[in-house]
Design a protein around this nucleic acid. Structure first.
Lengths: 229, 229
DNA sequence: AGCAAAACCTGACAATTATCATTTTATGTA
DNA sequence: TACATAAAATGATAATTGTCAGGTTTTGCT
């Protein structure tokens, strides 16, 4: 279960791949393996983080509380992704909360190792930079979507995103199950509006539901919607 | 006019401050000084950038075209800021267009120097990382604003932002003048809606206008609006 | 100065989305 | 299994925002 970072495949997906053997050894010796149950928080907005979390399994939502009391989900983090690096690097309190959407396994890595390696191994720094650059681009895309697309379009996009990134089970339902409220918080709308759109998509045969599970039936139709038809 | 980077104060505001003398010398020798007139583009979405732009003077809007043909302004870049680094680092085409909002003076710095320095000087890499981390946080904030605040609140925020970041002239008008359309594209709304809100604010005495110039009168009232009162 | 083009503004209306109230359904637990 | 609780669903209505169509003013240019 708990194993050595040197042999961990997960890190191939993140910036830790750019660490050398010695650095990895240090990480391995000081990392803390953690299980997090669905619904539990890894950290809360405004906290001071003493390290980063490398996701081995499961999915976490990264969200920010808005003035009107609603959570806006800014990003979903899953296998291979590192959470908390932004605030460790900027040496600031976290601007986001992280709550597990499914049961998770994560490794906590103390920030000293991260910053030491950043300061001495340019390859690592550049690799982290590349990942952050990617995140920034995605954030820009989200901004444009939020302001220029309708709620319906964003809902359609959300379903397609979940299908493409987390796949579906044998019965054709999305593997990652979000509550209606979470969907609303991803899309940035009221829960009722979100539910109404789900009903609407279902009535049109674009999706199917079973309890809280949702399955994409007409991917093409959803895509058309997103494109504006 | 055109001078040596070694003596340039501007770089104190950006990651170039972490370069050593040799590196700065190289930058200085290869940089190209450029004047850009208001309305001219520095680069367009989808272009391949061969370097970054360090802003000496003036302001540029960074925007992204949405599917429905509207430009969403994602960020304003002004004195001291570096544009294009994201795409140079990620080695991707730019995801944004940069167009001058006022007359500008910029220095173009070839990407080779940037990436060489990133790969050899960890201080520089970390400094760039820090700036990018900051940008990412700001982007998160924008996402939350877009989805959770009303157009009116976002407009109020925009005026306060411009006042606090670019100041006002002797007559109390914002130093940075945006067209109504630009305001709409910052806030993510239709130009007509934007104009209506300006009229409304004016009627309420929160702001004043003179041609396209806008001045903040009741900062407190605008703040209250943003906070949700 | 005079003219064309662009930017700004307003009204009327339609579409989208939020809110509140209530019902129905699912879920976990004793 | 039954009960309490939370989640999902729906209706009615109001508020917000977008669209279209037409004005007026400003601006840049010859």
């Amino acid at each position: 279960m708990e194993s050595r970072c040197e042999n961990c495949i997960i890190r191939q997906f993140n910036a830790l791949r750019a660490m050398n053997k010695d650095e990895l050894k240090k990480v391995s010796d000081s990392k803390v393996f953690k299980k997090v149950k669905k619904g539990e928080a890894l950290f809360e907005e405004g906290e001071k983080l003493d390290g980063v979390f490398c996701v081995r399994n499961g999915v976490s939502k990264l969200s920010k509380l808005s003035a009107n009391g609603k959570d806006q989900i800014v990003k979903l983090a899953s296998k291979g992704e590192v959470m908390g690096q932004r605030s460790v690097i900027a040496e600031e309190l976290t601007n986001l909360s992280a709550v597990a959407i499914s049961d998770m396994e994560v490794c906590f890595i103390p920030k000293e190792i991260i910053s030491d390696t950043l300061n001495t191994n340019p390859n690592f720094a550049v690799e982290v930079l590349r990942h952050m650059a990617h995140d920034l681009k995605e954030a820009d895309d989200v901004i444009v979507n939020m302001s220029q697309k309708t709620v319906k379009q964003r809902m359609a996009e959300a379903f397609l995103y979940l299908k493409n990134n987390y796949g579906e089970d044998d019965d054709g339902f999305l593997s990652l199950t979000l509550s209606r409220e979470d969907y609303a918080n991803v899309v940035g709308t009221a829960t009722e509006s979100c539910i109404r759109i789900i009903s609407d998509f279902k009535k049109n045969g674009f999706i199917k539901t079973s309890g809280k599970k949702i399955g994409v039936i007409e991917e093409r139709k959803l895509l058309d919607l997103v494109e504006g038809f």
